[in-house]
Design a protein around this nucleic acid. Structure first.
Length: 304
DNA sequence: GAGACGTGGCC
DNA sequence: TGGCCAAGTCT
């Protein structure tokens, strides 16, 4: 009897079919998934969803697409309007880049969102994740969509660990790519379904394993859901008193100001002069704030 | 590749 | 109560 020269690899149940079936039953109805969505709408949703929860994005997305339904509309808008519409979604540089992106689409892509990954990757604010997501969700094409949700699902189900490594590796992308179904439609659906599973069931905290379609094959669950081996690996996110918070305060003040704000009045945003000045300078350098010369001295406003 | 970059809700 | 987390990107 011939015997294998090497032990067979550990059996791993293919997660794709169970997750697709689960998604058929449990997918949320989100506006950027509606049949009448446009590639531009999908792109806007993906940028807004970068580090911002669905619940806060949904109303902002609806208002945004109502106001600027095409890239040309956003490209032509005053940046101050764009930043005010972004409101408190956070990371306002995303709004700036989204408008830059719209202008590139108008100037170089006929006002349309391209469907190939290389072209998408050249757009401002579009990185590896978003390029893949737009390709899959807007155009139904095959792409390796590897976001924090998918990374967590695969870390648990396949690797048997609580959380993925802090940094994404080439090997991890290759492993994820190997799981992506070959045909466009199924690949796009797998991307959506695996993300949804991570968002609704295989969550970072308090995962709902009894409701998981992978419960019978998940290595992490089988191992008794061991704790994260890299516990405390993440730096605590800075909060009180940081430049990040001060920048947010300044932006909030300027969003609410109908007229340019004199330099002295910026103290309402933050009392510490040195830190405030440093932050205002960085905001000007980032293009998020305009410095104007007035007869009474410098004043600040959202960029026109 | 580590660090910067907003905001708010949840357990 | 407050640390952790949310569909990342850029430098």
């Amino acid at each position: 009897m011939p015997t294998p020269a090497a032990p067979p690899p550990a059996p791993v149940v293919d997660p794709v079919a169970p997750v697709l079936a689960w998604y058929d039953e449990h997918a949320r109805e989100l506006p950027w998934r509606a049949p009448d969505r446009t590639p531009w709408g999908v792109l806007v949703s993906e940028v807004m969803l970068q580090q911002t929860p669905v619940a806060r994005v949904e109303p902002a997305w609806r208002a945004w697409l109502e106001r600027w339904p095409t890239p040309a509309d956003l490209a032509a808008a005053p940046t101050s309007d764009v930043l005010r519409a972004w409101d408190r979604l956070g990371y306002p540089r995303r709004a700036l880049r989204l408008q830059e992106c719209a202008r590139v689409l108008v100037e170089r892509h006929g006002g349309h969102v391209p469907d190939d990954e290389a072209a998408l990757l050249t757009l401002p604010g579009i990185g590896a994740y978003t390029a893949a997501a737009v390709r899959a969700f807007a155009f139904g094409r095959r792409a390796v969509v590897l976001d924090t949700n998918v990374r967590r699902v695969l870390a648990r189900a396949v690797d048997g660990v609580a959380l993925p490594a802090p940094a994404q590796t080439v090997a991890e992308v290759a492993r994820a790519a190997a799981l992506v179904p070959a045909d466009d439609a199924t690949a796009a659906r797998w991307a959506q379904a695996s993300m949804e599973l991570g968002a609704l069931v295989c969550t970072a905290r308090a995962p709902r394993c009894p409701q998981c379609p992978l419960a019978s094959s998940c290595r992490w669950l089988a191992a008794g859901r061991p704790d994260d081996a890299h516990a405390h690996r993440r730096r605590a996110q800075p909060w009180a008193g940081t430049d990040r918070q001060v920048r947010g305060r300044v932006m909030a003040l300027l969003r609410g100001a109908p007229e340019p704000v004199p330099a002295a009045a910026l103290s309402d945003a933050w009392p510490d002069t040195a830190q405030r000045d440093r932050c205002v300078r960085s905001l000007v350098a980032d293009g998020l704030v305009a410095e104007l010369d007035t007869p009474d001295g410098p004043a600040y406003a959202l960029p026109a």
